[in-house]
Amino acid sequence: LNGLELAAQSTPPGDDDHIHITLEVAEACFQRRALVGDKNGDAHYDVISAFQKSIRGSDTDAALHYLGQLVAAGDLPSICRRLMVIAYEDIGMANLPAAARTVQAVTAAQQLGLPEGRIPLADAVIELCLSPKSNSGITAMDEALEDVMNGHNGAVPDRLKDAHYVGAKKLGHGTAYQFPHDFPNDWVKQQYLPDTLRDAQYYHPKTNGRFESQLAEQYERLRRANRT
């Protein structure tokens, strides 16, 4: 408001007796360059895009630069939403604890507001940039969703159908189901996918980080055991 008042007082009226404050006058009065922060303009979405791509590409300094642009524009909602998307889309299974910590950082930033909220946001951005990356979660979900949207649903196996109603047993629903917790290691060989999709594989684990590498070993071990 002080800068606006200075601009108005230092700018003479034009031919129409109105004071026209140009971008150059505003920059001079505020003593800083105007930031491209129009939330409805293409430039805003370009910065958000560059922000995500910099984290995906593990460029910490670039990511912090674009975060700085978004913070300066005061767009905390876009920062928080995009950061959580990045955490689970681009880092995901390679480092799920980092994704969870990102949610904590976003919550802290929302509670703090700006400018203090920039502190937990910066911490999250640095960790995500330097973390191993994996998009196996989103690709697995999209492959499964593609099957569903293309009509490849198949019938739910009778053993998995709801058996909590009168007449279910007569229909054979749930009667052949084996309760995994009744078996050693809480696992028993059993088909869960529909017959038409019994060999489908949606999850293709990556081994960029120790977290997903361990999950990948267990995933392959269980798939082999179910096929034997």
Rank of each mutant, 00 (worst) to 15 (best):
A105S: 14
C129D: 02
M84C: 15
S58G: 09
A124R: 09
H65N: 11
I79Q: 01
L130C: 11
D75A: 12
L112S: 09
R118I: 07
V125T: 03
A62W: 12
L83Q: 05
L96Y: 12
E116Y: 02
L76Q: 04
R118G: 04
L70E: 04
L64S: 02
T60D: 04
A94I: 02
T60I: 03
V85P: 00
A122D: 00
V106G: 07
D123E: 14
A72H: 10
V85K: 08
Q104I: 11
P77L: 06
T107G: 04
L130G: 00
G113K: 01
I91M: 10
L114Q: 00
I119Q: 04
V71M: 06
G57H: 10
A87G: 08
D123W: 07
R82F: 09
L96F: 12
D61M: 13
A63V: 09
A62M: 13
L114C: 01
L121C: 13
Y88S: 14
R81D: 14
A108C: 12
S58A: 12
D75T: 03
R82Y: 09
A87R: 08
L112C: 11
V85N: 10
L76H: 06
L128H: 01
A100P: 00
S78P: 05
P97N: 06
G68S: 11
L67I: 09
L130P: 00
Y66P: 02
A87M: 09
A109N: 04
I86W: 02
A73R: 05
L76T: 03
I91P: 00
T102D: 06
Q110S: 05
A100K: 14
L67M: 09
A72W: 01
R118N: 09
G117N: 09
I79P: 01
T60R: 12
T107W: 09
I119S: 07
D90C: 05
A109D: 07
T102S: 10
G113A: 04
V106M: 12
I86S: 01
Y66A: 04
A122W: 01
Q111S: 12
R101H: 15
A62I: 10
A109E: 05
C129P: 00
L121N: 07
D59T: 06
R81E: 14
R82H: 08
A99V: 07
L112M: 15
C129W: 03
V71N: 01
Y88W: 10
I91S: 08
A87D: 09
A73I: 04
R101W: 14
A62Y: 10
Q110M: 15
G92D: 06
S58K: 08
A124K: 06
R81I: 10
E89K: 06
D90R: 07
A94D: 03
G92L: 07
A94C: 01
V71D: 01
P115D: 02
A124P: 03
L64E: 04
A122N: 00
R81L: 13
Q111L: 13
L112P: 07
A108I: 09
G92M: 06
C80M: 04
G68P: 01
